[in-house]
Amino acid sequence: MSDFATTLPTGITEPDRDELRRQGILLTSLEEFYNWGRSNSVWPLQFGLACCAIEMIAASMARFDIARFGSEVFRPSPRQADLLIVSGTVTKKMAPQVVRLWNQMPEPKYCIAMGACAISGGPFKQGYNVLKGIDRFIPVDIYIPGCPPRPEALLHGLMTLQEKIRGQKLTGPDAPRHLRADTTCDYPVPEFGEHDLEPPANSAVWQAPTMMRKEKGQA
C-alpha cells in the first residue's frame, strides 16, 4: 500500500479537519477509515467458560448494553467472530478446545482475557487441572482483572481494544498479524498427555518470567 493510503496528506492539521467536517467534507485516510469501521463492529464469539460468562451476559443485557459499542452481535460460530472473550477458568481439559476455536476464527481477530482465571489461573491457580493463563497458548490483546470483573470493566476492556484497533498501522513492521507475511495465524493445539498437557505452553507466545527467589534476610 502506498503512503497515500495510510497517511493523511501532509500539511493538514486536526483543526483543519474539524473545519472541513463542519463544512460537510470528511477527510480521512484509508487506514483510518478501515480501522474506524472495524473497531466499531467487533463481533464477539458467544463463548462462556465460567463465572465471568454470567457477567459477560449481563454486559449484553439492558442495563449495561454492550450494543452501544457495536459488539452486541454474539456469534455462535467462530467463523463469524472477531473477538474471543476468554471469560473464565480455562482448564487443561478445555485448553485444546479454546486454542482450536481461536484457530478457527478468521483474521483479524483479537482476544480478551476476562478475569483473574483467564489471566493467570486466579484463585484456582494451584489446581492440577487449571491452565495458568490462556496466554500460554494464544496471544492476548487485553487483560481485564477482577473475579469476576464487573460488566463496566468488560466495557472498558472493549473500549481499550477499540483504541488499539484504531491505532493499528496497515503497513510497515508494526502491521497486525494478518497483514504480514512472516507470521502465522495458526497456533499449535496441545495434546492430552499422561500427566499434563503436551506441551504445557506454547513457547512462541509465552516465556516463563525469569525471577530470582530471595532467601529470608537477603537484601
Binding site: 473464565g88 481439559k93 494451584q126 487441572n129
Partner: peptide, 13 residues
C-alpha cells in the same frame, strides 16, 4: 470435566 477446577483438592490445602 471441562470446568474441573479442583475445588476439593484446594479445599484440603
Amino acid at each position: 470435566g471441562y470446568l474441573h477446577r479442583n475445588h476439593e483438592k484446594l479445599g484440603e490445602n
